[in-house]
């Protein structure tokens, strides 16, 4: 199923932010927004909640830290206890560096993996740009034409009044979001 959408293209952050607020205030359904860089304050204007990928990172970090600490105790004190200069077999202070490093490593990798999975990014993925300049210098707000009451002409005019440099009609593949 595909859906008819209206894409309002903006050139300036200064126009984009108030436009998004205005469109939301007027109860338009913003299907998507595409921007060339992380626009400060846009996530709040668009009503996005904080991303939860950091929880994945934190979980990985703590799991890795506990895991490697247990592994160090097991290898040094249980599996093959070696007397090194009379130090205790399970000498926890000297296990701290590896514990910390593995926590950081897995925490970082876990968060990035979560990003790739959540955003469905993978090498070689085919991409359909909403606008040829969206990775360069154009901001695109996609409005879903939700029902019969959607007045395309009026919306078009509204977008132009809000500073859109270009408005296009398009079809958007219905995608799980």
């Amino acid at each position: 199923m595909s859906q008819r959408v209206l894409r309002a293209v903006f050139a300036r952050e200064e126009d984009l932010l108030p436009a998004v607020r205005e469109l939301r205030a007027r109860r338009y359904e913003i299907a998507d927004i595409h921007v060339p860089y992380a626009v400060h304050g846009l996530d709040r204007a668009a009503g996005l909640r904080a991303a939860r990928v950091s929880w994945v990172g934190a979980t990985f970090a703590f799991a890795a830290a506990f895991g490697i600490m247990a592994f160090q105790v097991w290898t040094s004190a249980v599996s093959w206890p070696l007397d090194v200069g009379g130090k205790p077999f399970a000498s926890h202070p000297s296990f701290v560096p590896a514990t910390f490093e593995m926590g950081v490593l897995l925490g970082g990798l876990g968060a990035v993996a979560a990003l790739l999975v959540a955003a469905r990014l993978y090498p070689g993925k085919r991409v359909e740009l909403v606008h040829p300049r969206v990775t360069d210098d154009r901001f695109v707000v996609t409005l879903a034409e939700t029902d019969a009451a959607f007045d395309a002409a009026a919306t078009w005019a509204l977008c132009e009044r809000l500073g859109a440099v270009e408005v296009l009609e398009d079809l958007m593949a219905e995608e799980r979001r």
């Binding site: 927004i33 595409h34 921007v35 060339p36 991303a51 950091s54 970082g108 990035v112 070689g124 990775t135």
Partner: peptide, 27 residues
């Protein structure tokens, strides 16, 4: 195309991306 992972500038992706960037900086 291969290395850009199909990046298309979606705001939701940027939102997660910024969080990961912050987390990586914090780590």
């Amino acid at each position: 195309s291969f290395f850009s992972l199909g990046w298309d500038g979606r705001l939701a992706t940027w939102n997660r991306y910024e969080m990961v960037y912050l987390l990586l900086a914090g780590l």
